[in-house]
């Protein structure tokens, strides 16, 4: 995955990010922070920038380029869609200006005492098949990686697979093929295959991350957009939870 020298540098960088968050006494990383960790570790994420107010948002959106995704950013709001804190596919500054205030209002209505840092401006991703990669610590075996398709597949059908970390590419591939919904990724009714190799990479890289950093107790990359074969896969939302601070 990384060269030896590369790995040392990357480990240092991720450790720095995690340490600075721990200094704040926080255990739950916000989306943009989780994505910083993932990006530093080499997991593909969509560009995600924090904007504290409207004028910053307008500036950042020009850099990220329209269309964009707008998400509320608060350490007190974990389920952003529940708080009506997400706008997808804003295509102009006008739409951004209208949505910004609305998002803040929604968040205040959802949780009046929430500390709101602002919003994130994110690169818009075209529709793709959605998957989930998670990580947890099993009481007997430690770092464990989870894989499943998004939505009802995981929530209702519990169609998920597990492997202990670190894991080989073959383990990761088996994990993907093992779920009942695999035909969805392999391509049904003439649809092309999703980029399974890119998913194998993400699963393996995530496994390496939780293996190297025992302070990460839980991770939820949900959703990951899996594009057609050869076109990659990108993490669209992410949550990292750190262990008890000692």
């Amino acid at each position: 995955m990384f060269s030896v020298i590369g790995l040392v540098a990357v480990k240092k960088k991720v450790a720095e990010i995690l340490n600075s968050l721990r200094k704040d006494g926080r255990r739950e990383l916000m989306e943009f922070e989780s994505k910083q960790v993932l990006a530093a570790w080499g997991v593909p994420v969509n560009r995600t920038e924090l904007a504290r107010d409207l004028s910053e948002a307008v500036k950042v959106a020009r850099e990220v380029r329209y269309p964009i995704v707008l998400k509320i950013t608060s350490p007190d709001i974990i389920h952003k869609s529940e708080a009506k804190g997400i706008k997808v596919g804003l295509s102009s500054e006008l739409e951004l200006r209208q949505s910004f205030g609305e998002l803040i209002d929604n968040a205040r209505a959802y949780k009046p005492d929430a500390k709101i840092l602002g919003v994130t401006i994110q690169e818009y991703l075209p529709p793709a098949r959605e998957v989930i990669v998670g990580a947890l610590r099993d009481p007997s075996f430690g770092a464990t990686v989870m894989f499943g398709l998004g939505g009802v597949w995981v929530e209702v059908l519990k169609d998920i697979s597990f492997r202990l970390a670190p894991l080989s590419a073959e383990d990761a591939r088996e994990m993907i093929q093992e779920i009942k919904g695999y035909p969805v990724l392999a391509g049904i009714r003439g649809a092309p295959q999703a980029d399974v190799n890119a998913l194998v990479d993400i699963i393996q890289t995530v496994g390496q991350l939780v293996h190297e950093f025992p302070e990460i107790t839980e991770m939820d990359l949900n959703p990951i957009f899996a594009f057609d074969d050869g076109k990659g896969a990108v993490v669209a939302d992410a949550r990292i939870i750190l262990g008890e601070i000692k």
Partner: peptide, 15 residues
């Protein structure tokens, strides 16, 4: 119940 830990155990044996 859900059997998550059993599934993890089964996966680890497979590995």
């Amino acid at each position: 119940g859900e059997g998550k830990r059993d599934r993890i155990f089964a996966a680890s044996l497979r590995q």
